[in-house]
């Protein structure tokens, strides 16, 4: 048996926390990867909000004389074939990623919560039909389903969001349904029912809040996938259309063609996608450790 370092164990358990700053330090020490994730996500959101302030260039302004310009003081990440400033396009592209990622995660999440809650709560024929529909949706890989949906809806920002959100529904619905099935038999739910609350109120006021922890964990993971799927759809030409600067489309347009003479066209948009998704994944992992201790790794 090794010796126990009492001070270390105490620190680990969160003793001696006196101020808010101590609490932050304690958190950072226990979850170093989470802090990295939080910083990346904050920077990403900040970039999307203050895009106009960060970059003085117009992301859609073309300039023939700057075609394929190498990174310089004026265009710090270079310019694309049409002479548009890459830095401005990447900064403004964060808006598309953020809007599509967050909206489709939320939309898919809300639909999934409603279906899952009603399925687990009502059971019967509603549950049976919903489970079969979910089976069908899960029979196609996420990207394939999103691809077919995006194509049948037609290219626009709203349609891309819809096309990504629907394939995200099944997993949310499954998670909420299984939590609901377990929760509906709990004494406190029975008590609420006995107190004369309507079924709908019991479901939303007592059952739903108790499924939040796994939902938040799943939601963060899905945010990362949503951003990746948007990039993939736009890369294949079925995502967000012009003139929106989308990171995925920047890589398809002519990046591959000009990769040899202008490698910055390939490197920077891809780096942007990777860093943001990496950040949400770090955050998702940390949230899972914190909110769902049974799954702690």
């Amino acid at each position: 048996m090794t010796d126990v370092d009492h001070q270390l164990e105490l620190d680990k358990a969160g003793a001696n926390i006196n101020s808010r700053w101590d609490a932050v330090l304690h958190f950072a020490k226990n979850y170093p990867l989470a802090v990295g994730g939080i910083i990346i996500v904050i920077m990403f959101v900040g970039m999307a909000i203050f895009a106009d302030v960060i970059s003085s260039h117009d992301p859609v302004q073309t300039n023939a004389s700057l075609s394929l310009a190498a990174p310089s003081a004026n265009n710090i990440l270079g310019a694309d074939m049409m002479g548009r400033d890459m830095f401005a396009r990447i900064v403004h592209g964060s808006r598309i990623s953020l809007v599509v990622g967050v909206s489709s995660t939320l939309l898919g999440g809300i639909i999934g919560v409603v279906i899952g809650l009603m399925s687990g709560y009502l059971l019967g024929w509603f549950d049976l039909i919903m489970q079969r529909i979910i089976d069908i949706m899960q029979a196609l890989p996420l990207l394939v389903l999103a691809l077919v949906m995006a194509a049948s809806l037609g290219p626009s920002l709203e349609n891309t969001i819809l096309a990504i959100s629907i394939p995200l529904v099944p997993r949310v619905a499954r998670v909420v349904r299984s939590s609901t099935l377990a929760l509906r038999e709990m004494p406190f739910v029975e008590a609420a029912r006995a107190a004369g609350m309507t079924e709908l109120r019991v479901a939303f006021r007592h059952v739903l809040p108790n499924t939040l922890a796994p939902l938040i964990v799943l939601g963060t993971a899905q945010l990362g996938s949503a951003i990746l799927v948007e990039a993939s759809l736009s890369f294949l030409g079925l995502g967000v259309p012009e003139p929106h600067p989308s990171w995925g489309r920047m890589l398809s347009e002519n990046a591959a063609e000009y990769a040899r003479v202008a490698p910055w066209l390939v490197i920077f948009p891809g780096l942007a996608i990777s860093i943001v998704v990496f950040g949400t994944n770090l955050l998702g992992d940390a949230l899972r450790d914190i909110l769902d201790p049974r799954q702690r790794t």
Binding site: L33, L251, A255, A256, V266, I267, G270, S274, I275
Partner: peptide
């Protein structure tokens, strides 16, 4: 462990088409 975890997490974060483009650029 931390290194491997970061590598695996980046595996989930890199868009596969970007990875493919980088490999092509590198090989050229």
């Amino acid at each position: 462990d931390y290194t491997l975890r970061v590598i695996s997490l980046s595996g989930l974060s890199l868009p596969s088409f970007w990875l493919a483009l980088l490999i092509l650029m590198f090989s050229v």
